[in-house]
Amino acid sequence: MSFILQIRLKNIDGVLERVLGTIRYRGHQLLRLMAHPTPDGSSMDVTLKVDAGRGGTHLTRHLQKLFDVEAVECYSEVAHARYG
């Protein structure tokens, strides 16, 4: 199983490293990554695919704790269920 994460980030120094570091440290493997700044350049939209690891809910909660993360949505690739 894998998860798709859609994340909106503040577009500032080190923000992608923070997100990728959290994913690695929390035991998930990165399977795909797409990132681009929003039109006004203030934010960045990132779509990630990660392996299931300890589950999407935990990873989502850890990502939500990062201060530069504005929103996270996590979908299971199979069920497309949404996690808070």
């Binding site: 120094d13 080190g14 490293e17 923070r18 570091g21 440290y25 201060f67």
Partner: peptide
Amino acid sequence: LGITLPIVKHS
């Protein structure tokens, strides 16, 4: 900033 990313709440 890079060295301390995983050991700070924020930077």
